[in-house]
Design a protein around this nucleic acid. Sequence first.
DNA 1: CGTATCCTTGAGTGTGATCAACATTGGTGG
DNA 2: CCACCAATGTTGATCACACTCAAGGATACG
Lengths: 249, 249
Amino acid sequence: MDIGAMTDQQRHALRSRSASHLQALGALLQHRRHVEINEVLVSEGSAPNRVYQINEGWAFRYKTLPDGRRQVLDFLLPGDITGLFSVLFDQNCCGVQALTPLLVRSTGARRVISEFNRSRQMAVTLSWLAGCHTRRSDEQILRIGRRNAEERMAHLFLELYRRLRQNGLQDTVARRLPITQKIIADHIGMSQVHANRTFRALCRHGVVTLRDGDILLLDPAGLVRLSDFEDDYLEHIPACPTRQESSCA
Amino acid sequence: MDIGAMTDQQRHALRSRSASHLQALGALLQHRRHVEINEVLVSEGSAPNRVYQINEGWAFRYKTLPDGRRQVLDFLLPGDITGLFSVLFDQNCCGVQALTPLLVRSTGARRVISEFNRSRQMAVTLSWLAGCHTRRSDEQILRIGRRNAEERMAHLFLELYRRLRQNGLQDTVARRLPITQKIIADHIGMSQVHANRTFRALCRHGVVTLRDGDILLLDPAGLVRLSDFEDDYLEHIPACPTRQESSCA
DNA sequence: CGTATCCTTGAGTGTGATCAACATTGGTGG
DNA sequence: CCACCAATGTTGATCACACTCAAGGATACG
């Protein structure tokens, strides 16, 4: 056996410690603010001065090409924190925009840096958090690189569903996705028209439908079948101790 | 102005401190080992017990689908460190395989964890490193999501060229890429046949050619034109203090 | 030599893009 | 209250980029 190896128990212990550590970090984000639908919270090229947690609503990270093509990199769901890995850079390489009205909490970069330096265990926590993000973006690369249209869309829907559930939302809530077909298209690398046709195909399979402008997941198990979904890359990041507050806000 | 904001100078100072800090971390990787061409250094699903630095040679990170489709997530170049963000997980979600014979140095996960805990500034360093990786994978998502075949390939070649230069390799060396068309195809999400046709097209533009089985970049500036390349997402990670050794090894 | 790997090219097919038109909805201002 | 506009979803027609299948050539290696 490998001399420097750790047991699963040791790893598990480190992860739980990281989890509570991260909640402490989340508690720093005191400044509350409402963001309008479609508002750009962070613009491409701006200085990364703040770290945000989405308290209510959905947002997305994106990049654009000079000719206007846009890639939606990922989605920020209620409870998600963004910006922790940008504080050392002079410019943001991507932007953040609201998909729905948001309630966000934030704090300044200096405050984050001093919290980074406050505790010796923060490095382990950040390694874990970075690992969670890496796994997600690796899966996104696989999704757009090697899956076909139906698989991509079904796989995306499932990822969002699982993450919403992990972030503490109820099943009925987690099955509603407030995203347009244009946004989906820009996320999984296809045209809006083809996203529509793919979506219609999923509807015909009976796994999703449209309800009041939102996408409604009817049959998660069916989506798993359609996309070969394996959820081992998704790890719960318990950075959202404000779910209760936010629901009564 | 934002109260918690930092100046570019402050950020710059933190980055240089992180850089030297990271070199210290690299110095931990004492265990040397040779890896054969095509050997799997880390297999999908294995326990992440070690952190590696590539000392000589090229490798790639990958994921595979049950039906055999493979996605090359990114390339590991001489000087690159991999595994820092996996140590807290029970299983690897992706594998690492050698493209050329490698000389790697490594250390065990426990050692890495204790180094994480040793210094208060390690968290800042990891935030920076995670940011560097995030920027690269965001760009990879944009590449396969929203660029066409020629742009993808030209863009990839440039990224590799710049990274090799940043890692301290000479210009003539950095212009040689030891990758097959199948590997390129699996990285930028196309078939091997189409990768060949795209490559031929780039040859016809006079920007690349094939030399002794390697890809040779003839005209980096031409590649920039063909792919709208912006290098602002690439930041030098000075984690390779062993370049000199390795060239006389 | 024979075999394996990689590159190359052609032919035929298909997935997904583009263009265009129209329906529906919600918001805004007269 | 209605007219108008913007955003979104829907569908058809056409086209192109990229895939698959197939075969052959070059090179390296045992």
